[in-house]
Simulated scan of single mutants.
Amino acid sequence: MDFALLLVIAVGLSGLGYAADLLFFQKQRQKAVNQYTSKGPRSALDADVIEKLEKEPWWAEYSRSFFPVLTLVLVLRSFLVEPFQIPSGSMLPTLKIGDFILVNKFAYGLRLPVINTRFIEIDEPQRGDVMVFRYPVDTRLNFIKRVVGLPGDRLSYENKVLYINGEPAPQQFVAALPAGNPEHKLLLESLGDVEHQIYNSLTTGQNMREVVVPEGQYFMMGDNRDHSNDSRYWGFVSEDLIVGKAFAVWMHWEGWSSLPQFSDTRLIK
């Protein structure tokens, strides 16, 4: 069960509890207080009795406290911004393992939580965007890759070069990485107006024959080209699986043995 579903259930239950108490049980408590105070002269125990009669049950108190907070979290997470953590190196050097990123949830339109149906169209993914989506093979998982193919594009991958509609995506050599190890090289790739860095291994890679991206689908690739499980292996990403556009790294945290780092905050490009 994913977090979005748990959050929706929590909002629903706390909202029902809050509404039930406000519309019915609160009135019953006040009625009991009015009946008690109408019986005649008050004793010293009246204050304690009235306090007990007015006291909210635990479920009503929790519902009243948590409902607005959970609702705010649901709205922010579903329609504005959602945080994610990068679990793998498939997007190196753009994103590192342990990066905590922010994802714009309205860039590609507003979607209903859990079912992910778009009900307001705003924009469509553009070539070069770093996008979070539900893994087509197992939609319980979220993946993050770069959009390299739009609906109708013809794509192929030959000798470590991406071809889009018959034209190679321009690449510029930057450096051999890591220092002293020439097995990988750092390149600057251009996808339209978007320039971004990629890793390529110097070993022989797997070519991909030309494919045509269907309508309503997108072709995704990791920036760590030889170490990415992406559309080259499991196919296209349909529009209904889109989660949002990654736009910033706000924290890096290696794990429990280290402290979070906020010195590497940056925009994602």
Rank of each mutant, 00 (worst) to 15 (best):
A32M: 09
A32Y: 01
A32S: 15
V33Q: 04
V33C: 06
N34A: 11
Q35S: 13
Q35F: 07
Q35V: 11
Y36A: 13
Y36H: 09
Y36F: 15
Y36E: 11
T37E: 11
T37G: 07
S38V: 05
S38R: 14
G40E: 09
R42Y: 03
R42D: 08
R42F: 04
S43N: 15
S43W: 12
A44V: 14
A44N: 10
L45E: 14
L45F: 12
D46R: 12
D46S: 15
A47C: 05
D48G: 12
I50G: 01
E51R: 13
E51S: 14
E54G: 02
K55C: 13
K55T: 13
K55P: 00
K55V: 07
P57T: 07
W58G: 07
W58K: 10
W59I: 14
A60K: 02
A60V: 03
A60W: 02
A60G: 07
E61M: 12
E61F: 10
S63K: 02
S63P: 10
S63W: 00
R64T: 09
R64G: 01
S65W: 12
S65G: 11
F66C: 08
F67W: 08
P68M: 06
P68K: 06
P68L: 07
P68H: 07
L70I: 06
L70V: 05
V73T: 08
V73L: 13
V73P: 00
V73G: 00
L74I: 08
V75P: 10
V75G: 10
L76T: 08
L76Q: 13
S78L: 05
L80R: 02
L80W: 15
L80V: 15
V81A: 05
V81D: 01
V81F: 06
E82L: 09
E82S: 13
P83S: 05
P83Y: 04
F84K: 05
F84P: 01
Q85P: 00
Q85R: 14
Q85M: 15
I86D: 01
I86L: 07
I86S: 01
P87A: 02
P87M: 05
S88Q: 10
S88F: 09
M91Q: 05
L92K: 07
T94S: 12
T94H: 06
L95Q: 03
L95H: 03
K96P: 00
K96D: 10
I97G: 00
G98Q: 07
G98D: 02
F100S: 04
F100C: 05
I101C: 02
L102Y: 07
V103Y: 00
V103R: 00
V103S: 01
V103L: 04
N104T: 06
N104I: 04
N104Q: 14
N104G: 08
K105D: 03
K105I: 08
K105P: 08
F106R: 09
A107T: 12
A107P: 05
Y108E: 05
Y108L: 03
Y108M: 08
G109V: 03
G109S: 06
R111D: 03
L112E: 13
L112P: 01
L112M: 15
V114H: 00
V114P: 03
T117R: 09
T117N: 15
R118T: 10
F119S: 11
F119K: 10
I120Q: 12
I120G: 06
I120V: 12
I120W: 14
I122Q: 13
D123F: 04
D123A: 14
